[in-house]
Design a protein around this nucleic acid. Structure first.
Lengths: 341, 341
DNA sequence: CTGTTAGCGCTTTCAC
DNA sequence: GTGAAAGCGCTAACAG
């Protein structure tokens, strides 16, 4: 026996299916008596409204799709907190998909959401090419989170990565560091901006000659490898600005493995200010971006378009701020102290 | 103008809508010429199959719902890796929902998935009461991950939490610790089993008199508060077994704040062996559960029922294993070394 | 308030 | 191979 439908409920309750429909949607003008009867029968039968059928006829799903590039990064969990809160308040449901940093899976997840007819799309740091994203935005309001956009059809809410990187470099420079290296975020969203922000800031502080960027990624492994590249040849830096908190943790790990202590031998700055960075045990100096607020804002941007209140693109840039914790200190000028080469 | 439908494509290509349907589903018996024509028109029009309509008529969605209790815990991200991989291989799409450790939101997320007619449900450490879960399982094959079940209708794949806790205690005891405390996981999934495993193991090692359990949760904060409870009064333990890795990190943080060093003053053991624990900088001794494999297994269990291959419940218990890293060492028997009270 | 009716976009027989 | 027709479960008029 298959699942009960609205018709089964109607028959059993001795009413029309329209009435059942009204009751299920909580319409006001239904007699209390019938409402109770219908609800009772529905419960008996284990009836559950079929969102598929409803969506088809209503031509709307009440669904927002959220695509994450990487479930492993707590940054996204914190953005989602804001997304879910705002979406719930505005009467939208949310489904999450992820591509796990693989373009093909991400594309598949995107297609699934589009086929499911989500009414809006929030893409958090997708690695998908802008072309694909612009295409999606022709079908449904789309907003990019933590990835910049200049597209006229895709809104975005990001933090000012360039300014954030400058904050990190400024802090380190003011502490007296000169050999400040950057482990970048590879092809990750905002990575290029952070890199450029770093480079420009180094110039502004008269440290252009000391600038050094090595390839990394927005993962622990990225930070770990960056340290290997940085310390295996050339002159070792006295401070490292990692692409994000995860990479910073990888950096801390790799440094520990080399017998270098933080912040005595090397200072480290991350980016994002995830809960991880705040954990006292890690206590990472980092650049904060307002993660839940970015999530809420993303939902608002989507709904503005959905409600037809706006056609022009909006590209919001939130100001980042520096959070100084325990992984930064003035450079030690006693080279003998450094145990590793 | 609204979205193009199969009819628009058919008209424009000068064929019937059945033919378009066949082409879109990749049917074999369609002339190459028409196939190309249809595909071309579909691309021109930006046609995208409507999964809502398709699901309604086919009476299947090809969708698996995954409900996570907490996006912030990397444990789940690692389980999801396995889920997505297996689901993709078996031709199923996946949508993720989360309740962020709030029962009401979790219930809502569950309802959304059921209304969307996901064909199977994977619930990772839900905090929902078993009654609600059993109800869901009457609608659709449901499997619990990392939470035990004795239900006849709900399958489960978990690790042997009792055995895992014993592993942790055994390791600590063999190191010479006697005052081994446990910060529990509150009402989290598996928390009770770990607590009982701890208590029994303490007894077996003749340490029943030293056993001490304080309330915590599966979060950093839980570990942090546990330490406060543990060290603010009574005799301080020389080792702490935290409910999971996140709580262990909170434990490490709180210990650091009190000026206690790990493992010199206090040994710490976590649970899960998430990537976090493995990070060299944290380097946490912990109990491993095979996270991605648990995810894959969960998908298999769901599909077994979906394919009608099984009616009896299966409750799988994976063996945990100990991973010794840097946060455990023999107890220091020089009490004067302890700076905090 | 209640029942009837006409689809939503698509798949699936079943003739041709 | 191809097209016509009959719904999937539900909502939204509309007339009682």
């Amino acid at each position: 026996m298959s699942r009960p439908t609205i018709i089964d409920v109607a028959k059993r309750a001795g009413v029309s299916k329209s009435l059942v429909s009204l009751v299920m949607r909580g319409a006001p003008n239904v007699s209390e008596e019938k409402r109770q009867r219908v609800l009772g029968v529905a419960a008996d039968l284990g009836y559950r409204p079929n969102a598929v059928a409803r969506s088809l006829v209503r031509q709307r799903t009440n669904l927002l799709g959220v695509l994450l590039s990487d479930l492993h990064n707590p940054f996204f969990a914190e953005v989602i907190d804001g997304i879910q809160a705002e979406a719930a308040e505005r009467g939208y449901r949310t489904i999450i998909g992820t591509g796990d940093r693989v373009e093909l899976s991400e594309a598949r997840a995107l297609d699934t959401m589009l086929e499911l007819r989500t009414e809006g799309l929030i893409l958090a740091s997708p690695i998908l090419p802008m072309r694909r994203i612009a295409e999606a935005s022709r079908e449904v309001p789309t907003v990019l989170v933590a990835r910049g956009s200049r597209s006229a059809s895709v809104d975005s809410v990001a933090n000012d990565d360039t300014a954030g990187a400058a904050l990190a470099v400024g802090h380190l420079a003011s502490l007296g560091h000169r050999r400040i290296a950057h482990i970048d975020g590879g092809d990750g969203a905002g990575s290029r901006e952070r890199r450029r922000g770093y480079e420009r800031a180094m110039e502004r502080h008269g440290l252009a000659g000391e600038a050094r960027v090595v390839a990394g990624s927005y993962t622990e492994e990225g930070g770990w490898k960056g340290v290997r590249a940085l310390f295996s040849r050339g002159r070792a830096p006295s401070a490292v600005f990692a692409a994000n908190d995860l990479a910073a943790i990888g950096t801390l790990s790799a440094l520990a493995e080399r017998g270098l202590s933080v912040p005595e031998d090397v200072s480290v700055v991350g980016y994002d200010n995830t809960a991880l960075a705040a954990a006292h045990h890690i206590h990472l100096t980092t650049v904060d971006q307002p993660r839940p607020e970015m999530g809420r804002t993303a939902v608002r941007l989507v709904l503005e378009r959905l409600d037809g209140k706006r056609r022009a693109a909006r590209h919001l840039l939130m100001p980042p701020s520096l959070v100084v914790r325990g992984t930064t200190a003035p450079p030690s000028n006693a080279p003998g102290k450094r145990r590793s080469r």
